[in-house]
C-alpha cells in the first residue's frame, strides 16, 4: 500500500510536468504567432529576404535596375533612400501593420509586413 501511494505521487508529479510542458509549448506558439511581425522583401515577385520587424537593420536592396535602402526599426519599416526616378517608395513612408506594403514599380520591389495580428483583418485590399 505504501509503495502504491509513493508511485501515485510520482505519477501525479509526472502528469503535472507533462501538463506544464504542454502549457509552455502552447504559450510559446501563441506568443510567436501573435507578434511574429516580419518584413518580406520581394524583387520581381521572388522573395529575396525576410526580416523581423523588431530587429533594427539597414539593408541595401538590389532591385531591378537600381537599389533601395530599407530601414527597419521599432516595429516599422521604410525606404530611406533609392535611385528610382519617381521616389514614390520613399514618399510612401513607414509601414507597420499587417498587409501594408511599400512598392517601387521601377525596381519591381515590394516590401510587405506580414504576421502582425490586428482585430480588423481582411483577405485583400481593393484600391
Amino acid at each position: 500500500m505504501m509503495k502504491n501511494k509513493k508511485s501515485l505521487r510520482r505519477d501525479i508529479v509526472l502528469i503535472l510536468c507533462l501538463l506544464t510542458a504542454g502549457l509552455l509549448i502552447c504559450l510559446t506558439v501563441w506568443l510567436f504567432s501573435g507578434k511574429g511581425g516580419t518584413v518580406v522583401v520581394r524583387v520581381g515577385g521572388t522573395v529575396v529576404g525576410e526580416y523581423s520587424l523588431y530587429e533594427t537593420r539597414t539593408l541595401t536592396l538590389q532591385g531591378t535596375g537600381g537599389t533601395n535602402l530599407l530601414r527597419i526599426q521599432n516595429g516599422q519599416a521604410w525606404i530611406e533612400d533609392a535611385d528610382c526616378p519617381d521616389g514614390l517608395c520613399i514618399r510612401t513612408g513607414k509601414i507597420s501593420r499587417q498587409g501594408q506594403s511599400i512598392i517601387c514599380l521601377p525596381h519591381q520591389l515590394v516590401v510587405e509586413v506580414q504576421g502582425v495580428t490586428s482585430g480588423n483583418e481582411i483577405d485583400i485590399n481593393v484600391k
Binding site: 498587409g99 501594408q100 480588423n120 483577405d123
Partner: peptide, 18 residues
Amino acid sequence: LWRCGITDPDHPQESDRF
C-alpha cells in the same frame, strides 16, 4: 466569404483603416 477591405481615400496607406 472573402473579406475585401476598400481603401479609405483619407488613409490610402493604412492597411487597417478602410
